[in-house]
Design a protein around this nucleic acid. Sequence first.
DNA 1: TTGAAAGCGGTACCAT
DNA 2: ATGGTACCGCTTTCAA
Lengths: 340, 340
Amino acid sequence: MSQTPEQSAERPVPTSADVARLAGVSRATVSYVLNNTSAVRISEPTRRRVREAAEELGYVPHAAARSLRAGHSRIVLLPTAHVPVGPLYSRFFNELQWALRRLDYTVVQYGSLGLDGDAAARAWAELRPVAVVSLGEVALTAHGVEVLKRSGAKAVITLGPQDVEGAHSLVMDQREVGIRAAGHLLERGHRRIGVIMPEEPGLELFSVPRLAGVRRAVEPAGGTVVPIPLAYDEDAATALAARWRDLGVDAVYAYNDEYAMLLMRALQDAGIGIPQETAVIGADDLLLGRLLRPRLSTVRIDMVTGQHLAELVDRVVRDPGSEPERHDLMGAQVVQREST
Amino acid sequence: MSQTPEQSAERPVPTSADVARLAGVSRATVSYVLNNTSAVRISEPTRRRVREAAEELGYVPHAAARSLRAGHSRIVLLPTAHVPVGPLYSRFFNELQWALRRLDYTVVQYGSLGLDGDAAARAWAELRPVAVVSLGEVALTAHGVEVLKRSGAKAVITLGPQDVEGAHSLVMDQREVGIRAAGHLLERGHRRIGVIMPEEPGLELFSVPRLAGVRRAVEPAGGTVVPIPLAYDEDAATALAARWRDLGVDAVYAYNDEYAMLLMRALQDAGIGIPQETAVIGADDLLLGRLLRPRLSTVRIDMVTGQHLAELVDRVVRDPGSEPERHDLMGAQVVQREST
DNA sequence: TTGAAAGCGGTACCAT
DNA sequence: ATGGTACCGCTTTCAA
């Protein structure tokens, strides 16, 4: 009797038993009424009494108890380590959440700081999610996928640079972006190609593979790749521009359009002609690139939409038997404007 | 074409009872071992047997069952209707999630499409969150707060234009931004002031009060306010610029720096001098404003940091008895550059 | 038409 | 040092 977990001075949270007592019926009846169970017929007067009692007490059902009993949840887990800033990614993320919510899933965002793949998978599995959509910030291993599936996850979907055994993988090979950017610059006759590497944390996920892509395109062609760290900050850009000519690059791929804008402004202020002296290309095809002068060339990325991904989640949840698929998505195309 | 039978749909998820059976001990012992309960001493050999059994079965505890028994959760609910895009807001949001996670809360993002305040509050209460941080997209009423608290929420915190009874309110009066922007333009001698109103959904939360602020500053001074709808899109801006002179405004507050950039470019392309013919001021003090020519004047907003808010959540959770406070935050200051 | 009761998976008190 | 067991709140047979 002494095991009341939490007996505060406040009113205890009303349960369906309280509603039943007040309405003078059993808990079963309360459940039937409030869930509109069609298999059972409850008289209208009883329904009314139950509803009124629930209303009066401010009764709200307990989701955890319900799903414990049901044996499954509608939780979709979205692990996040660092959510990369940037308009493209935010938009995707919002769309995804929105679309999942429309499909009646509960989105749980779970920060997984400093957990390695398997520890993270175990932590996620505690929530018994029906699906996990890993955005690739935390490396999910085949074993991690197994743990999740064992814990009842019907769909494990990864979105990242490579596919993971046992999971549906949406492979977004960011190297492609670098390859396209570099390919374009090579075509235009450039050979010594700078690559802006953001110093902000959480962007390595994208920046490192993009650099690798540039290398892959440039080195076989006999060109040179020069990685150039840059903080997203005016002073850093000015300092970089001051020593720009020492770098001897004749073209630069600037990670994305925002970094490209920062760099272009600094170079222009330092009297370096774009594209004559240095060609500049960004990525992401943001509106701002079209507003710059010269207009910014860029790599447009065809990313999966949040809506699309949400539908995949739902499909896999409904048909968990389906073989894990691997989709290569992420087309990338150069949009040439005036800066190259 | 033999079917792959290894689907977990068949194999039941292992429970602590399974672990107990395999280890040849009771469920209580399993619980003691896996939770390192210090009140009881378990022999080392037993501990090992339990650990091995858990490992072998791939056992992962069930968070819902645990918190059902415990009588409370560590869920912090973040309702989101439309998460406004925009770097300032995304950064805040990420910080908040990150900081809460560090404090060992589980962040649940819950999209509340088309639910009115009270229905939303009920839906949120089902999850029995220990805290709710409403970012002001869904209007929370005093009654809604009551429902949440009755369901066990120790902290209900709202961040929005006005305080809500019963909740800790962080009042961010966006009108202040409009007031500052307009005040600055009035000082510089402008009297007919345009206000760019983004057509994108989800921004009304900010744009409408900002417009109200402009009105409040301009009208007593005998000036005129001209709201100007604008989609975040190059063609829309070009079309607007073409009829700009008909509007007869001599200054414009452009919602934020991104819309300001879009507008400035279109105006400049149409041969309209900035700031001579039309002064332009943005808001948010983004880096891009400093990169524009002329450099963009802006309103810098001192928003609460995610870290700060997370600490408030934690403090209120630990001391739920504390009186609801109302903090006015959101200082706003004009940063004058060259566009005004 | 309604109620009694058996769990879902864990935790922690009380015996042993 | 362990085991037995009574809950947490809810759904869902099975009886009455």
